[in-house]
Design a protein around this nucleic acid. Structure first.
Lengths: 155, 155
DNA sequence: TTGACTTTGACTTTCATTTTCATAATATAA
DNA sequence: TTATATTATGAAAATGAAAGTCAAAGTCAA
């Protein structure tokens, strides 16, 4: 299992290296650390979150570098930008081609991913009705996750 | 037809007045102008857009006032806040209780509203599966509207 | 009309994000 | 390996949208 994750991240790193040489970028240890951490963790990050977590492991990285690296990841296709209306941008690992949507807990911030081909089918129908060409879609359900719901019940 | 719109806006203004007295607000001509324009136009606005358009008719309004008035409208329930990921907040007229989703043209910015009870049903099912309590949802389809699609075809 | 309120416009502040620039690190050519 | 050219970095400044501040102007009930 762990092996599989490692292999996957390896191939994602390879993707980044392709992008890197295409763009004439250089390899810095700091940037690499950030990218590896992001790939290893494999979850949503705001710049701030990633900054503080990476800093624990590699204390010398700066905020700007995390910023720039996340943008690079987005440009290279390894990360996807998503915002949940709280004013900060989040980056999610882009598991190629596998589009998914989000359940966002308004209390604890937990993000759950889901996918529904049925919904996507209905979306297509709606677009057709309006003669609209859909390039991408965004579906977010906001509310309380199981945990917070339980807490809310006992006030 | 026009009559109907006017009547509707009248009743919306009444709603605002209820909110107004509830909150102990006062009536200023400028605020009223902004609200009337917003209701008359009955479409999505960013603060900037509304500011420039209202300014043409009532040149004395300031940016702050438009800003505050839109926030008031949102608070009073006459407007709903929505953001389409371009970094600026938009306000849409809230046609009470009627939740709807959006088709957003990435080229010309046109926003088409739609509603699908079927999709909402599926959303509910998904939430149930995750034991998640949905408070609100957001569904946006981004792409090209009919018009821009046509233009795109002939390069 | 007064006096107690709210609203306004101009301004400042905040905060996330982006850019700048001098210095450090990296890659490539010799 | 060393020189040189380029990119990356950190700290700081700049930006831009959103929110707050405050004196002056407006509103309105008594």
């Amino acid at each position: 299992m762990k092996m599989k994750v490692k292999v996957k991240n390896k191939s994602r790193l390879d993707d980044f290296n392709k992008y890197k040489s295409h763009k004439g970028l250089k390899t810095s240890q700091k940037r690499l650390s950030i990218i590896e951490y992001f790939l290893k963790e494999d979850r949503h990050f705001s710049v701030e979150e990633l900054y503080y977590e990476v800093k624990k492991v590699y204390p010398k990285v700066s905020y700007s570098t995390v910023y720039r690296t996340l943008k690079l990841l987005a440009d290279s296709g390894l990360a996807r930008i998503c915002s949940f209306g709280d004013g900060t941008t989040r980056f999610e690992p882009a598991h190629k081609a596998e589009h998914h949507d989000h359940l966002v807990c308004q209390r604890c911030g937990t993000i759950i991913e889901f996918k529904s081909t049925e919904i996507e089918l209905l979306q297509k129908k709606i677009a057709q009705k309006h003669n609209f060409l859909v390039v991408l879609h965004k579906l977010e359900l906001y509310g309380l996750c199981a945990n917070c719901k339980k807490k809310a019940r006992r006030h």
